[in-house]
């Protein structure tokens, strides 16, 4: 199992380098540069800026100096936010997005699994149908509708939370709910469909035939089989949640990483783009690996495949 883990990490290295390389060249082929403004800058200033940031060198030289810095963990200065290095911005903003993302992930899991399994158990009754309808609503409702709706009800009408900002712990409630809803709904559907498909399996009949109660059959026998699609989905979902969301962070005015994904690309802030891309792809790689390991913990057959 440990060998599998190490092998997967080693396999991820060339993938990571390929992504970084592709993005490095792609952003430089996009017309415009980091110092283009609405008001033109004088050619002398532009030349000085390019020289200062090393952008006057050839692409190849720039690429290798980027790799050299990367190997030391240096991502360089941001072109847009003077005086800030990309490392500093990432560290500060990612921490906020991470907190928000973890809250959202936990909410999504708790809500999604309980709603999903409940609607599977009650699939023949009206409550089950209603739950599955709600989950469809959760998938269809975009966060730019849900967020303002939550603000309207809980902040403006009920005065229970602040409408925006990121100061008190309670400020995390509305944005993480907004962020979590889509994922909760998706998890609920995966869990529900998984559980319903499992109920017609032979081992369920065996479990009833040996005298197990309905609760036991669902919680012990069906749950462990039905949770597998949810576990596989958790990898990409966690990566997306933890790197922040542009929409949610903008609605709730949260100083997270999400908006940098968009703004850095619009500003051609090359170093910042690279930082965002690297964080996102690292998260994807890591969380896919984590979800595969979790899957092995749930399903012994997958575990034995891995230790081969």
């Amino acid at each position: 199992m440990i060998r599998y883990f190490i092998r997967r990490l080693l396999e991820a290295v060339p993938v990571f380098i390929a992504i970084v390389t592709a993005v490095f060249f792609m952003v430089r082929f996009v017309p415009g540069g980091p110092f283009d403004r609405e008001r033109p800058v004088s050619p002398e200033t532009l030349e000085a800026l390019n020289k200062y940031y090393g952008l006057d060198k050839s692409l190849c030289e720039q690429y290798f100096s980027f790799l050299k810095n990367l190997s030391r963990g240096e991502l360089g200065p941001s072109y847009k936010y003077g005086g800030w290095s990309v490392n500093e911005i990432l560290a500060e903003k990612a921490a906020v997005s991470l907190q928000l993302g973890i809250c959202a992930l936990l909410i999504a899991l708790a809500l999604g699994l309980s709603a999903g399994f409940a609607s599977a158990v009650l699939s023949k009754s009206k409550i089950g149908g209603a739950l599955s309808g709600f989950s469809l609503l959760g998938i269809c409702l975009p966060s730019f509708v849900l967020g303002p709706l939550l603000i309207l009800v809980f902040a403006l009408k009920l005065n229970a939370f602040n409408a925006m900002g990121w100061n008190a712990p309670s400020d995390a409630v509305l944005p993480s709910l907004t962020l979590a809803m889509f994922y909760a709904a998706w998890i609920a559907r995966l869990a529900r469909n998984g559980a319903i498909a499992e109920t017609s399996r032979g081992y369920v009949r065996t479990a009833y035939a040996k005298g197990a109660s309905r609760g036991r059959v669902y919680l012990v026998h069906i749950a462990r089989n039905a949770i597998q699609p949810v576990v596989s989905y958790l990898g990409p979902a966690a990566a997306a949640l933890l790197t922040g969301s542009f929409v949610v962070e903008t609605i709730f005015q949260i100083p997270g990483l999400g908006r940098f994904f968009i703004s850095s690309a619009l500003d051609s802030d090359y170093t910042m783009i690279m930082g965002c891309v690297m964080i996102y792809s690292a998260f994807i790689i890591i969380f896919n690996l984590v979800s595969d390991l979790l899957l092995a913990a749930v399903n012994p057959r997958i575990a034995s495949e891995m230790s081969k």
Partner: peptide
């Protein structure tokens, strides 16, 4: 439930699907 398994026990046709794959 006290009858099932204790008084009347079953063996089914397809052993590979009648056992739960994720438990020993």
């Amino acid at each position: 439930r006290k009858i099932r398994g204790r008084q009347i026990a079953y063996i089914f046709q397809e052993p590979s699907t009648s056992l739960n794959p994720v438990f020993t």
